[in-house]
Design a binder for these strands. Structure first.
Lengths: 138, 138
DNA sequence: ATAAATCACTTGCAAAAAGCAAGTAAAAAT
DNA sequence: ATTTTTACTTGCTTTTTGCAAGTGATTTAT
């Protein structure tokens, strides 16, 4: 697992030190919008992350306090990953990625989500943040 | 220069295909908040990007239409990089990086910018978008 | 007019990270 | 008791990053 070195004291730079790669925010996306919480579920995503990269990113995100890892309620062989408040705070960022990608790249966006976002970005962000918090208690 | 391959049709994934690295958004940050526009100015930033990486990222961002490259008005040996509307549309994303980093990482944030953001995120985003558009005309 | 400095890169090489396929180990299901 | 599930790890190759030095077209200084 790579350790974090801060390149500068700039908040943009520091955020990218943690989140600036091609996979971390996809894992968070899956937790927020697909309510995924296990290693096996993350592996099934469309983008096909490699097993070693997934293990590394989960460890990094846990180390930096964006998520927690715990033995699953049903099976001892399973782990459940949950968002912390620091993780929940990335939702506005993820929403901006949705909006930029939907506007400028050839993508397929969930119609319901897009409608919600067009009706009100702030309310949509808060809705998914609240859902993520509830999910973190279960 | 690496070519873009879309990993999926998800907008988050597609945005990260373009912007998901440690340097691209720092270049855009410098254009937006520091009004930088030349290769030499980007090199001077605190994070010390390597010359070959900078040249590559500028080319990628130009290829994907986030910025344009043109001979500078004053010198033929200089180039001026300017944001397109697609580039201006990343400002909400950069602002979320500022907010997340300021809240969760040990950073030093421009007090004026932070005050502006606390007074109103939307208005601040629009202000910097408008400034970037004006700058793109000059 | 000539020489030095500026500007925007490019090149070559070493180090780090990503990607792929196969293997491992504990627990759960059959 | 054996197979399957779950969550990884390991070894290897490819790709990307990072560093230092070099290049060539202006542009300024002498």
């Amino acid at each position: 697992m790579k350790e974090l070195k801060q390149r500068s004291t700039c908040p943009v730079s520091s955020s990218l030190d943690v989140l600036g790669d091609k996979w971390s925010l996809l894992i968070l996306r899956d937790m927020v919008f697909a309510k995924k919480s296990t290693y096996g579920q993350f592996l099934q995503s469309e983008e096909k992350i490699a097993t070693n990269i997934l293990a590394d990113r989960l460890a990094v995100l846990e180390t930096h306090g964006l998520l927690t890892k715990a033995v699953a309620a049903d099976k001892k062989s399973k782990f459940t990953y949950r968002l912390t408040e620091k993780g929940v705070d990335t939702i506005p960022l993820i929403v901006e990625l949705v909006l930029w990608g939907a506007k400028h790249c050839p993508t397929i966006v969930n119609a319901g989500l897009l409608a919600e976002l067009q009706a009100g970005k702030e309310a949509t962000v808060e809705k998914y943040q609240q859902l993520a918090r509830e999910n973190a208690l279960a």
